[in-house]
Amino acid sequence: MWFLLTFVENFISVKKTLDYFLSSVYLVYFGLLLVVFHVLQVIAFNVFGRKAQQKMVFALNFMITYGWYLTGTTVKFRQMFDLPTNRPIIFIANHQSTFDIPAIYWFLRRYNPIFVSKIELAKGIPSISYNLHKSNAALIDRKDGKQAVSEILKLSKFIQDNNFSAVIFPEGTRSRSGIMKPFAPGGIAALAKKAPNALIVPIAIQGNNLFDPNKGLFPLVSFSTLSWTVLEPIEPKGKNGEEIASLAQEAIRAVLES
């Protein structure tokens, strides 16, 4: 028993040291990506236009996503159903970490995802803040309901006019426990209002809360498994925001609890 306890204690100590080391390597890599791609985005947008800048964003998120392998982490993406590109899509996902977003950008890039984001992210963050302003993201002030709805309605009209997609995390804040918080229907209803033919598609995100369990990004937990599962679409016709939110949450919950 003494030997077993000693072994476990030593293993935990080594694993913690490894977490700190690999997290340091990754976060240096991550920081450099944000700075380099900020410059590339500015050049692309001002010289070649929005589509070129968007390609830089997709490349950035590819590099962020597959950079997680530097920590020994595995990335899994499953799209279980074919999705149309000739109508807008509203992706509804549970929210576990800052790192929920890059894989959605990369793996769902053909649907031109645009995010509903808190307004605080629109200032002072290389690459991220710049892209939020250039992508027509809905930058919401969570303390100002009227402003938030107005921003989401603008995004709703934009995806309707361009057959793009919107991504919303209706929990509002990240759930580090992995247990979903109730989905707020207001943002979903606002997104659907001016995009009446948008398809609703749930995304189940797993493992990010374990990979990034702290309030900051350090240390990350090495050798984690992260997954994104795109679930069966929901036709919104005849359904209100509460019904859509409930259906999406239950679909995601079934995956998280399986």
Rank of each mutant, 00 (worst) to 15 (best):
K134Y: 06
G172I: 08
Y130L: 14
L155M: 15
A166Q: 08
S129F: 06
I140T: 01
H133R: 15
K123C: 00
A184Y: 14
P185L: 07
F169T: 06
I179M: 12
A166I: 13
F169S: 01
F169C: 04
N162K: 14
N163G: 07
N197T: 15
I140E: 00
A190Q: 03
R142H: 09
G187E: 00
K181Y: 15
L155A: 05
Q160T: 07
G186I: 06
G124H: 04
N197M: 10
S175K: 10
L132S: 02
P126L: 03
P185G: 10
R174D: 06
N131E: 09
V116P: 00
G124M: 01
A137F: 02
S175Y: 10
A195I: 07
S127Q: 05
R174C: 11
N131D: 09
V116Y: 00
Q147L: 02
A198F: 07
I128G: 01
S135I: 03
I152H: 01
A137C: 14
F158L: 14
P126E: 03
K146N: 10
F183W: 08
S127N: 05
I179S: 13
R174E: 09
L121N: 13
F164D: 01
Y130S: 09
N136D: 14
K157L: 11
G187V: 07
L139E: 00
P196M: 06
M180F: 12
K146H: 11
E120T: 11
I168M: 09
A189L: 06
S150E: 13
A166W: 11
G187Q: 02
D144I: 08
G186N: 11
L153Q: 09
D144N: 15
D144Q: 07
Q147E: 07
G186H: 06
G172E: 08
G186C: 03
Y130R: 08
S117C: 11
I168W: 04
K143T: 09
I128E: 02
R174S: 12
K194Q: 15
K123Q: 04
Y130F: 15
L132Q: 07
L153T: 06
F169I: 10
E151R: 05
K123V: 08
S156E: 09
I159C: 07
S150N: 13
E120Q: 13
K154C: 04
L153N: 11
P182E: 14
A148Y: 02
S175W: 08
N136L: 09
A137R: 00
I119D: 02
P170A: 05
G187R: 02
S150K: 14
A184P: 00
D141E: 09
G187M: 04
K123Y: 11
L139Q: 03
S117G: 13
A192W: 04
E171C: 12
P170D: 05
V149M: 13
P182T: 13
